[in-house]
Design a protein around this nucleic acid. Structure first.
Length: 827
RNA sequence: GCGAGAGUGGCGGAACUGGCAGACGCACUGGAUUUAGGAUCCAGCGCACUUAGUGUGUGGGGGUUCAAAUCCCCCCUCUCGCACCA
């Protein structure tokens, strides 16, 4: 039983040791050689690798090994996204320290990755929780603070009283804490922000340069940035000195504004309702809405509601009095928190107006239609010709927008404005296991940065988070009690830590120079290796991580550490690994443990199946039977090599001049396979079809040498075919191929062997099958030599017996000949 | 609701620029080998029928074309993302 199956565990162990010992994949800057930087998203050290990692890293490894064979100097590093909340939770649960938990996980997972045979330069390994890494992040922070790109701001956060901590939005479930289930309350807190909005325009514009990114990801990023061009217009408020400023993308509809809606949090509310008899009602409504917003699930569709404030704005174009409402659908965070409402041309405003019996005024008439407030059943949001719009009447929407905005600018009550949905990046976390924020609060000097010479601010390791969930830093005097670097008085160190997305925003650059001590980045190394030529990871990071990383690249560039504008030239977002129709998860009990598979079939089989089952960007449906098929295929090659070892070891056998038909057939198939596999991998990454091509070659090899074969191909050609198989598969199943390569008497390992090239002459078919159709229906096939003239082909096709049958008694109207492909006879 | 992507055998998936639909693998069926099982090898395998053949077939309907999985229009379903963004 064992005799027919190859000994993968011995083979894999042997080659992993060789790669480790000889540092096969260690690289350094070499300006003589073209570089290729391949990067997969680094993992969070959660404990053990899962099938998603296996797939991601296998895809990357194939590309890295392939590019190496193509002669590139390939940088292929690996590291750990090692800060984060799970470590704190695990520490609390298992009564240990986050650092211990994290480093133990790293050790275990490193060994797991090694057992998969990935071609990493392990000398460049990074753990972001190491102060030699995050110290540079603290430096960036200070430099950005000095440039005004980092600033403190008080915002509303999700606060859980029992847990004594801020929760991220994702950790609030139905308005309650995910951990203790108590109600989350909004709380005003001071936090640090990165001014990513300063880069909104560049981040948007440069999307157009990312031609190697999936359109889907770019679309998501563009939507997230959410640029819109419109007008900012100030309305007078009756009886008040203050103005009500709104943002609109439809200034052309301003003559149709019949009310104003403002957000429940709008700061003007108290002045507006000051003399209003029903002001308590307004306050109550605003309060209620604000609370409701906290609770509500994002997918809930809430009915539009509002309340009149008793105040009126004045339309600067018409002089009309416009009632001001507080409305539950207006967001304080976007635009100015106030909107002019045009029920005739905005669906939300339409619904609101119908509900509260507010007049509807049509100011845009669509082509070939006449709208009337009495008959319309929904808002007309499209373009048209302006009506009832004073001097702007009869303009097209687009022209109207410009003219109306210009008028406001001339009269100084408005201007054109561009807004973005993107908001500044709040990076403060009230947690322990993260990079300390290098700032100081002094009662006399205010807020000031830690002097650069005092960096790094090392996260103290002699404390442990306790069950309260509160970060121990907040109470650790030894940490926070310091003297002010400016006045020498008592001061308090910032005890918040940074969002872990900060670490992953620049790790790709640090890999170029992981041991550099004179600064975050070594210019020579970074200029040589960056940008990343190919980045591979899950699509779930399409916005957050990838946007932050792009932002950080621009920041590092503006700080003078880099010269590139974008970090990742090409991006591949691989699909999920699913089983039985759903994502693998513990709760569904459909998790496949890579360790068990490696034990049973070996890493090469696991790699092969992850590549074969689906193209990378699609979801991969895990199938235990399919894994066996992959294993079977490797054994099939192994058996062929073992059975013909003597012949295959004869490296002197030359390809004879006069080769037999079966030799020619094998020779041709070999070169066709090299051509197909190469074009499938580069640039398409279609490993599944590449593998199937090698399977075909293997099948050809078996059928030409099997019992039914009349004349065996000559040994040199059999050796050529096996060599091709091993070279072509070596990026995918490296241990297996190296071993057989060595056994067949090759002295230089495959890792140092160039990728094979195909001989076009050898790949050329000397006979092709020509399809003959009558009226587009397949009726016959002809074996012909390539390159026949049209006339000869026509004649041959007409003469065919089967075709004759279909032509009988019919008139031939037309004959179409597609060279070397088909003949279609129309009757 | 808006945006993006996808619908092909029993299953995973192939099919370059419109030109033989279903490569390759899995499952299944038959045969060989074997004491047996496993492993291996050979053959078959979209569906239907009157089965040497013919018809039909790529979510549904229409269209362009000598020729459509592929291009155009309408519809249906699924997945993902955004979701009161003014």
């Amino acid at each position: 039983m064992e005799t027919t199956q190859y000994d993968f565990s011995a083979i894999e162990k042997k080659w992993q040791e060789i790669w480790d010992k000889e540092k096969t994949f260690q690289v350094s800057v070499n300006t003589e050689q073209e570089k290729y930087y391949l990067l997969e998203m680094f993992p969070y050290p959660s404990g053990r690798i899962h099938m998603g990692h296996v797939r991601n890293y296998t895809i990357g490894d194939v590309v890295a090994r392939y590019k190496r064979m193509k002669g590139f100097n390939v940088l292929h590093p690996m590291g750990w996204d090692a800060f984060g909340l799970p470590a704190e939770n695990a520490a609390i649960k298992h009564d240990t320290h986050p650092a211990k938990w994290t480093y133990e996980n790293i050790d275990y997972m490193r060994q797991q990755l090694k057992s998969m045979g990935f071609s990493y330069d392990w000398d460049r390994e990074i753990a972001t929780c190491d102060s030699s890494y995050y110290r540079w992040e603290q430096l960036y922070f200070i430099k950005l603070y000095e440039k005004g790109l980092v600033y403190p701001k008080v915002t509303t956060v999700n606060w859980c009283q029992p847990c004594q901590t801020v929760l991220a939005n994702e950790q609030v479930i139905d308005g309650c804490c995910w951990r203790c289930d108590s109600t989350v309350t909004p709380r005003e807190m001071n936090g640090w922000f990165f001014k990513i909005t300063n880069y909104a325009e560049e981040l948007l514009r440069d999307c157009d340069t990312l031609t190697g990114w999936p359109e889907k990801v770019l679309t998501m990023q563009r939507n997230w940035i959410g640029k819109s061009i419109g007008a900012r217009i100030s309305f007078d408020i009756e009886g008040l000195d203050e103005k009500l400023t709104i943002f609109t993308t439809r200034p052309d509809t301003i003559f149709g504004a019949t009310f104003m809606s403002i957000a429940p949090e709008h700061p003007l509310i108290p002045s507006l309702i000051k003399n209003y008899s029903a002001k308590d009602e307004v306050t109550a409504f605003a309060e209620k809405t604000r609370l409701l917003k906290q609770r509500q699930k994002p997918e809930d569709e809430v009915e539009k509601e509002g309340v009149f404030t008793g105040a009126y704005a004045v339309n600067p174009y018409t002089g009309d009095r416009i009632p001001i409402y507080v409305a539950n659908f207006v967001l304080m965070e976007y635009g100015t928190g106030a909107v002019m409402a045009v029920p005739a041309h905005d669906q939300r405003d339409y619904e609101f107006a119908k509900k509260y019996d507010i007049p509807i005024k049509v100011v845009v008439q669509p082509d070939g239609d006449i709208l009337s407030p009495d008959t319309m059943t929904e808002a007309h949001e499209g373009d048209g010709i302006l009506v009832n719009s004073g001097e702007f009447t009869d303009l097209q929407s687009a022209a109207g927008k410009t003219a109306i905005t210009q008028y406001a600018a001339d009269k100084d009550f408005g201007r054109q404005e561009t807004t973005y949905r993107l908001r500044d990046w709040g990076i403060s976390r009230q947690r322990y296991w993260g990079t300390p924020i290098p700032m100081i609060h002094c009662s006399s000097c205010g807020v000031l940065p830690v002097p650069e010479s005092d960096l790094p601010i090392v996260l103290p390791k002699d404390v442990v988070p306790d069950k309260s969930g509160k970060s121990p830093l907040h109470d650790l005097e030894a940490f926070f009690k310091i003297t002010c670097p400016s006045c020498g008085g008592d001061a308090r160190r910032e005890t918040d830590t940074m969002d872990t997305f900060v670490e992953s925003s620049w790790y790709y650059a640090r890999y170029a120079c992981p041991d550099f001590v004179d600064g975050p980045l070594d210019a020579d190394a970074v200029n040589y290796w960056l940008p990343v030529d190919q980045y591979i990871g899950g699509v779930e990071h399409a916005i957050l991580h990838l946007l932050y990383a792009r932002f950080f690249t621009k920041i590092m560039r503006d700080l003078g550490y880099l010269t590139i504008d974008e970090p990742f030239t090409n991006l591949l977002t691989q699909g999920m690994v699913i089983k039985d129709g759903t994502k693998m998860s513990k709760s569904k009990g459909n998790v496949v443990d890579p360790n068990i598979l490696i034990e049973k079939y070996g890493a090469d089989t696991v790699r092969l199946f992850s590549l074969f089952a689906a193209p990378p960007e699609r979801d991969l449906d895990w199938s235990d039977k399919g894994v066996e098929g992959a294993y079977r295929f490797l054994n099939r090659i192994h058996r062929f090599v073992s059975d013909n070892l003597k012949m295959l070891q004869d490296s002197d056998a030359a390809i004879p001049q006069d080769i037999s038909d079966s030799s020619r057939e094998l020779h041709r198939k070999t070169h066709q396979t090299i051509r197909k596999v190469t074009s499938d991998i580069d640039p398409k990454f279609h490993f599944n079809t590449a593998i199937s091509a090698v399977m075909e070659l293997t099948n050809t090899l078996y059928s030409l040498t099997g019992e039914n074969a009349k004349i065996l191909p000559q040994p040199a050609l059999i050796r050529e075919a096996i060599e091709a198989i091993l070279m072509l598969l070596s990026p995918m199943v490296p241990h297996f191929c190296e071993e057989l390569w060595q056994r067949t008497n090759h002295k230089v390992p495959l890792a140092e062997t160039p990728w094979p090239t195909f001989d076009p002459e050898a790949a050329k078919e000397d006979e092709i099958t020509l399809v003959v159709q009558v009226n587009g229906k397949l009726r016959s096939r002809l074996q012909v030599t390539p390159g026949m003239t049209e006339d000869v082909v026509k004649e041959k096709a007409m003469a065919d017996e089967k075709i004759q049958k279909f032509l009988e008694g019919k008139t031939i109207r037309k004959v179409i000949v597609v060279k070397n492909k088909l003949v279609n006879i129309v009757v």
